[in-house]
Design a protein around this nucleic acid. Structure first.
Lengths: 182, 182
DNA sequence: GGTTAAATGGAGTATCGACTCCGAATATAC
DNA sequence: GTATATTCGGAGTCGATACTCCATTTAACC
């Protein structure tokens, strides 16, 4: 692969990341313009718009997975769990926009993104278990509902354009529900 | 206004309610086809697609408002609060889809829908205050974060296509956070 | 520096969806 | 039953956007 091709591919990914983060209904032209390349170049690297969206989404999911793995490995998984939860909610806006664009596009999510999603879920589950062993999260909370809470808090925070203080108070309520009964 | 015109208007509203509930990106043709009228008829009653979406959204917001008012007036506002919360989350899928379609359409939400939203929020706040007076919800929870929780739980439930049992366990966690400290 | 295969860019195509026009149908008043 | 004003329906317009074609440019190897 030629050097300029690799360069352009990276620039396109970065531009798509930003553009689709801002507005899930953005056009491929927007991506090309921000990346500083012609539209044909975008389509050569990603033959279809859905594939481009998936590539961006996959990247983001993998990044969250790494964060979860690091948190689970930390010396204080209990604290790390809540910190991780807060961080995901705080900057979830763009991730959600992309996932939304994909589902709105009607396309079933492709294999790569699905695999990345599974990996992320597994990492988060590992973090949850570690936090439960550390006694920071009630033992009867299962992965499914904790994950639903995470997604819900994220979507709620971005959908309503929440003030940071309100978001923190909302998280405090959630955390009170997650902590072991005293 | 002629009788057939009134009829068709109602049929269009009902069809739009269902179609946009299923898929926020549905086309006006879809609405017309389900309503059994020509596309021009839809546009005569609602000069623009956004106005049609707003009409449907407004209707739904007003319905939620009435539910909240009824709950606040009940003899046991504490129980009614949690029942109301659960009900909103359970059938929020279509409401959210419509609100999403509106914001995705880039259109700032119009005055009617905004007013309906304010009315709904006020009714929910009344219900929250009643539930707090009844001692069923912790007194330090403010409307803003409770509303954010409601929206988040709704979006989380619909976004992830939650199983009903998981959804109930998620709500149980939230409710544990909302109940007064013992 | 020259050669060549790869990569590029922008004009072009096809499709889809919001919205309009106007002749046909129909409800209401007499 | 007829007149007429209102409503209807679908074919047509216009703009936007995903995707393609091909002449031009450029990186990489000698």
């Amino acid at each position: 692969m030629r050097a300029d091709a690799r360069d352009n591919r990276a620039r396109i990914m970065a531009a798509a990341n930003e553009v689709f983060g801002r507005s899930p209904s953005a056009s491929t032209d927007d991506v090309a313009r921000l990346a500083g390349v012609g539209i044909a170049t975008v389509f050569r690297h990603f033959p279809t718009k859905v594939e481009l969206l998936e590539a961006v989404l996959t990247l983001r999911l993998e990044r969250i997975r790494e964060d979860a793995l690091a948190a689970a490995d930390s010396t204080d998984p209990g604290t790390a769990f809540y910190r991780f939860f807060t961080a995901v909610v705080a900057d979830s806006a763009s991730k959600l926009a992309i996932a939304e664009a994909l589902t709105t596009a009607g396309a079933a999510i492709g294999e790569d993104a699905r695999k990345a999603g599974r990996g992320m879920r597994e990492a988060i589950e590992g973090l949850l278990l570690a936090a439960q062993r550390a006694g920071a999260v009630r033992a009867d909370a299962q992965m499914a509902e904790v994950y639903a809470l995470l997604v819900g808090a994220s979507r709620g925070a971005t959908a309503t354009n929440l003030q940071p203080e309100v978001r923190d108070r909302m998280l405090a309520l959630i955390y009170d529900g997650l902590k072991p009964r005293s």
